[in-house]
Structures are given as C-alpha cells and as structure tokens.
Nucleic acid binder design. Structure first.
Lengths: 192, 192
DNA sequence: CCGCCGACAGTCCATTGTGGAATGTTGCCC
DNA sequence: GGGCAACATTCCACAATGGACTGTCGGCGG
C-alpha cells in the first residue's frame, strides 16, 4: 500500500497514555498526581487519562527503564524523572502518525435510535447537552484570553471550533427531535 | 454473589452498547453480525461497537431475558429478537440523560506536547489528518443526498458540521506547527 | 463434479481505559 | 491538639478495543 508506519510495527512500544507522560516529564520530574493534573489542565476535554492508568504506566515504564523513580517526598510523594531511554522512546513515538480520533457521543446514539424513543426524552437530552456545550464554549473563550503558548492555543482553539460546531448543529436540528422548528436551516449540506 | 449494587442491577441495567443493540432490535430480529454492520453503517464514526462486545452483551442479555435467541440459521447464524422485558429496559434507558461525549484525539495530544517534538513530525501528522478529514467530509456530503429519515440525517449532519470545524481549525493553525502561515486568522477567538 | 477462495459468523484473549472505593499523610485553621 | 480538606497512592471491577483464531458456506474455475 503506502508503506507508512503505523502504531502496529512501532519500535517504541508506547501507548498514547505512556507517551503523554513521557512528554510531560520532559519539563521536569513529576509524580503521578502531578501528571494527572497537568493532563487534565492542558488537554482536559479532548484527551483523558485516569489515575489508575497513570500509576500503572509509570511503574511499568520504570520497569522498562524509561523513567526512574526519585527520592520519595512527603505524603509518599513519588516523583519520576525521564531517562535517556525514555527520551528516545518518546522521540520514536513522535515519529509515528497519530491514530484517528475516537468520538463516543451517547446523545448521537440516542438520536439515531430516536424513532423508538418518546419525543420528550429526546428533547430533554438535547436541551441538557445544549446547556453543557454552551457553558463549555464560554469557559474556553474565557481561557483563550490569557494564553500565549502556541501549542496550548492550538488545542484550545480546537475546543472552541468544536463547541461552536456542536451548538450550530443543535440549532439546525429538526422539529421531530427538538419539538420546535429549527433556528437555522438544517445547514449541514447547503452553503453556510 | 455479593449484595452490592452495580450498574448491572440499575433500574434498566443497560450500558450504552447493550441499549444500542436493543434499539436496533426494535426493527427486526438480527444476529450479532448484522448488529455490528447496522451500527457501523448508521453511526460509524461517532459511535463504535466491536464484535467482541456485541456478542458478549447479546448472551448476557439473553440470560437476563431481554432478548431471545431464535432458530440458528446457516453458518451458525444466530438471530436474536427483543422481548417485552427488553423493550421495557430500553424505554427505561431512554429516559436517562445520556452522558457527555468523550473525544480522544491523539493528534491533539501530539500538538499539546509539540514543544518536545520535531516540527517535521508535527507537520506530517497535521497533513495526514487534514487529508483524512477532507475525504470524510466529502463522503458525508455525498451520503447526505439520499437521506430522508430525520434521525439519520441528524447524525449525519453532526458529522458534516464536525468535519467542517476540524478543517477550519487546521486552516487556522499557526506557522510553528504547520510550517506555513495560517490560511485564515487563528479564527478561534475572534468574531466569525 | 470437485477444490478452494473469499465473504460470512462467532469465539477467545491480551491490553487499554474508566471509575470509584479504600487507605494513609500532612498542612493548617480553629 | 483536634479535625478537616487536600494530597497521593493502591486496588479492584468493569467496559471497550483489536486482533487472532476457528469454522461454514456459496460460487466459480477447472
């Protein structure tokens, strides 16, 4: 086919979560707790890592020599530093094309099956989500003000564009689903 | 067998995957294979179910009496029909507000860590994804033509809006990442 | 008529990811 | 000096994924 490298034959052996940890550890040594906080802060809604996963990956990477455990601190605090092998593995990972995104949207599932669901439930679900997305967009636009790092801005911009698209989509939903006529034309296919 | 209350004994006891299967089975009896195909076809990129998961849920729901196994057909084909209890469980599920969507976007992870990644890798990743999204958008717009069911249209519209947003976002990415100046203003914060 | 290839159908398993409960520690406020 | 909130890790059950594996059948070339 195209001979492109995919995650399958990758020589680094990292999953995305492990790679993200190594990425953050480039800045400074951190504990699992710190790493969860950093990821939550920087990528919050479009990438998620969980405590359990983080600690699991850290100890497995420690075993593989990609990170090393530093002196324990207060409260059993256990910082890890990246090693040379870790930098190498991260560099290898970064050379591989990232996989396509996965979107799991239960509301869409519900709408797809909408034919078999009472209208009032559909309406309630849509209204709920509309509110959630509205407030997320507001939050992102707020954050956008004090941002300068172009990499952080890129991620945040994605969030803003995404939320705007979702909101526009809500506005174009047909009366069968929302109970009220669309605010805009279904908008999806026609010109903007 | 402990007395603990888990998701399984919740009012409806369905996870989203199980619920989606019951939803499809409202139309007609289907096999696991058919169900995977139906889900793939209708919700493809924004909801995914896997074979393993489907067969597991089917046999567990058969045990719970939510579906019943019909006569085996050729090639071990094993259709399931929804039961009254299944309809009830689905109705209960449909009354609950769907959870928020989860977006896992490895490219965003890569960009967030972009500071530690050679520019050429970032550029390659972005270009690759741009192509993927461009062709997905084209595919959706094609499909849009022969669609009448408003529920299917709603899902497809989401796809179209989403892909357009992603493409616009690509166009606004800064030179640090793409290697070329943005085609549009970063667009995220300013007025449309 | 036979052999075999490719699409169909289901099973199994390792790994990854999620969510929450349980446990312990420490700083700090009253 | 007691108690509470925030910090930090561990453990576990369950959900979801993806690929390998097995078997079945339909149709086509020889």
């Amino acid at each position: 086919m195209n001979g492109r490298r995919t995650a399958k034959d990758a020589p680094h052996g990292l999953n995305n979560t492990a790679a993200s940890l190594l990425g953050f550890l480039h800045e400074r040594p951190m504990t699992g707790w710190d790493l969860v906080a950093a990821a939550e802060d920087l990528m919050g809604d479009f990438w998620s890592i969980t405590r359990s996963q983080v600690y699991r990956e850290l100890s497995s990477m420690a075993g593989a020599g990609l990170v090393e455990e530093l002196e324990r601190g207060k409260r059993d605090r256990r910082p890890y530093a990246i090693t040379e092998a870790g930098r190498k593995a991260f560099a290898d990972w970064s050379a591989v094309l990232p996989a396509e995104e996965a979107v799991r949207f239960p509301l869409l599932l519900m709408l797809t099956l909408g034919r078999h669901i009472p209208r009032e439930h559909l309406v309630a679900a849509v209204e709920h989500h509309r509110a959630v997305h509205k407030s997320r967009l507001a939050r992102y636009e707020d954050q956008f003000a004090d941002m300068s790092d172009p990499y952080a801005v890129a991620t945040l911009s994605f969030g803003i564009q995404y939320e705007r698209a979702v909101l526009a989509w809500f506005d174009g939903l047909p009366e069968e689903i929302t109970g009220v006529p669309p605010k805009r034309s279904p908008g999806a296919a026609g010109a903007p």
